[in-house]
């Protein structure tokens, strides 16, 4: 498996993603935002950053970028796509995922470790994570407050598309564990088919004991298993 890490001019987590993927044995290539092609078996990563400065609204300009058409096609063909932090914002702005990410309810940027509980195990990104396992990793954002209307939220829940929730150390989705005011403590969601994941927390920063933890690797490893299985099946 190989990963394609997309680089917008204001992306800054590309190196961190390449490093984290390397830790779980995945080679990556960086893809400049003007490029337009992915291999079918590539894991496409939209990393954190401020894609185009984000003075208007996070991700609102990036969705018009040439590379986003290719991301759309890749997703439609069943390829794996993960958007982290700004990447999640871009996926929402591009209409690949429902809802929006608003300013944190604290009205402040938040960089801190949080606990995260997988809310489903049906997508390639969560299938390999043991049920009930709480993952610890950082968030680092000013606009991570997930919002969608009630009908959409119900639809996401009913169809098992809520991928992760902010929780306390015991896995309870409490208000105190929610770093940004996201509705229903939602930290990450998938598309209907489950091959596109958007999440605010940074698994690529929890990849090395030296940096304070390795829980983020569980997500990459799960996705890796998913692709291997798919490739084997084909």
């Amino acid at each position: 498996m190989r990963a394609a890490v997309i680089v917008f001019p204001g992306t800054w987590s590309d190196g961190d993603c390449v490093y984290a993927l390397g830790r779980v044995g995945v080679d990556s290539r960086r893809v400049w935002h003007r490029e337009t092609e992915f291999a079918a078996d590539e894991l496409v990563v939209l990393p954190g950053g401020f894609s185009y400065g984000d003075y208007l609204r996070c991700g609102s300009i990036a969705r018009f970028s040439p590379v986003m058409e290719a991301v759309r096609s890749h997703a439609a063909a069943g390829g794996l796509v993960i958007g982290i932090c700004n990447g999640f914002q871009v996926l929402c702005e591009a209409g690949l995922l429902p809802g929006v990410l608003m300013r944190n309810d604290s009205l402040q940027f938040r960089c801190q470790d949080i606990d995260l509980l997988p809310a489903q195990h049906s997508s390639p990104f969560t299938a390999g994570i043991a049920a009930g396992r709480v993952l610890r990793m950082p968030v680092s954002h000013g606009e991570g407050n997930y919002y969608a209307d009630e009908a959409t939220l119900d639809m996401l829940e009913d169809s098992g598309r809520v991928a992760f929730r902010y929780c306390d150390a015991e896995g309870r989705a409490t208000a105190g564990a929610n770093p940004n005011g996201s509705l229903r403590n939602i930290a990450g969601i998938t598309n209907e088919a489950g091959n596109v994941l958007g999440m605010m927390p940074h698994p690529e920063r929890a990849c090395d004991p030296l940096l304070g933890g390795v829980d983020g690797n569980a997500i990459w490893e799960s996705a890796l298993g998913g692709v291997s299985a798919a490739t084997a099946g084909a």
Partner: peptide, 16 residues
């Protein structure tokens, strides 16, 4: 103060 600063990007911050 410091929770308003991204103190981890670049994956090089060993002691926060």
């Amino acid at each position: 103060i410091y929770r308003q600063y991204d103190h981890q990007v670049l994956n090089q911050t060993v002691v926060r």
